[in-house]
Amino acid sequence: MNASPEPIVAIRALTKRYGAVTAVDGLDLEVRRGEVFGLLGPNGAGKTTTLECLEGLRTADSGTVLVAGLDPRRDERELRRHLGVQLQSTSLPDSIRVGEAIRLVSAWHRVPYKVGLVERFTIGALMRREYRQLSGGQKRLVHLVLALVGDPELLVLDEPTAGLDVQGRARLHDEIRSISEQGVTVLLATHDMAEAEQLCDRIAIIVRGRVVVCGTPQEVTAAGHSETRILLRTANGSLLPGSDVGAAHFVGAENGYLEWTSREVAEAVTEILARVQRAGDVVDDLRVARPSLEQRFLEVVTEAQQ
């Protein structure tokens, strides 16, 4: 990651209501230049509305949004030169060819048709295909290419891999990494925790229109209440029936495995292995399961909704 501290997106006290429903409720957020930033949250948390406000596709009720120093409400046209957008729900005319769509967007961005972009995404074979003939993954890829036609500083992707198969998802992940390596800031909304962990330098979890946690995936995960699970099976079952061991709290035994939880993992594992050795026993299997981002996400969402 080559992130500098200067924010490319600065959102302060953003509020957006739809009638009686408050979709975004005083949200603050900063995205630094060069990073891949993930917005996570349950359905209806306000992710898409937040993105639409910064894309200039929706008008906020209050608060300020600055994207590359521009106000999307006032400077929408100028903003398009700095911003590439892939919407959550998007389409093109059925009969338009991929090459025509790229030529069309290039013309409106006043940039030459980029052969390099086509080569980089290896979509040369699709250029003469009509939009209706593309698979879901190919359509996503085409929309990603269209978002990059104007050489944006910031690429906004709203659930870019939703509905894709494993291969399509892996390919899109590779492309997003490659885009980030070129220095483009990527802001993506996703429901996929694995995607957020693999791709994002920082993430924010939004619940009820507010950011409740923000940091690197590791920081967000570590800040939770969940403890690391330690599972052990020995040849002779010497530690059965099981008890607390130093910093490890004994949870129970099942199928020959003893389970502990602990925050001081290294200390706990060392002490457990020492006991096994002292008993003249041999370790069959040892597993250390750190809390996942998904567990932390569920914890955060449950707390925020209570």
Binding site: E55, L57, R80, R81, V85, Q86, L87, S89, T90, S91, L92, P93, L104, V105, W108, H109, H143, L146, A147, V149, G150
Partner: peptide
């Protein structure tokens, strides 16, 4: 159809 399918929004998001 362009309004319903989100094509117009996609165009606008892409600077058209």
């Amino acid at each position: 159809k362009m309004r319903e399918s989100g094509t117009l929004r996609a165009y606008r998001a892409n600077g058209i």
